[in-house]
Amino acid sequence: MKKLITLTVNGQQQEILVEPQQTLVEALRYTLGLTGTKEGCGNGNCGSCTVIMDGKIVNSCLVFAVEAAGKEIVTIEGVSQGGKLHPLQQAFMDEGALQCGFCTPGFIISGIALLNVNRHPTEEQIRHAFAGNLCRCTGYDKIVRATLKAAAL
């Protein structure tokens, strides 16, 4: 039987009906229509579903929607402010740090979370922070460089 839950998504309170076994990524994508968060594996191995929940990055494929009741979620749709790209998004664009774009929302969320706690990460720290985000197109080179560039701003 569906449960009614309330949660805040990108600053807006949302009241939604969810099946107990529905994961947060499914609720975000199919109940709220926020399809920017992707599901690449469903098992927490690829990071495509990364969102920020109460200030910390999590794999939304491994959170039941009911567990997210009362929480504050930030998805990729909530990153750019008033039509202006976040500096990390801009750096990705300038450096060519994306190709197919499927992993990109997850990287942006993880990257922002990193820069929020570490304003000047080293290359090694950036790679470690992105260990849970897989990319098959770029080889990570330009992703790391773009993140360093955004950090230097």
């Binding site: 927490g44 990071g47 990364t50 990055i57 999590v58 794999n59 491994l62 959170v63 993880s110 260990a131």
Partner: peptide
């Protein structure tokens, strides 16, 4: 263990 995302849960 895992990644930052995993360790946060």
């Amino acid at each position: 263990i895992g990644s930052d995302q995993i360790r946060n849960r």
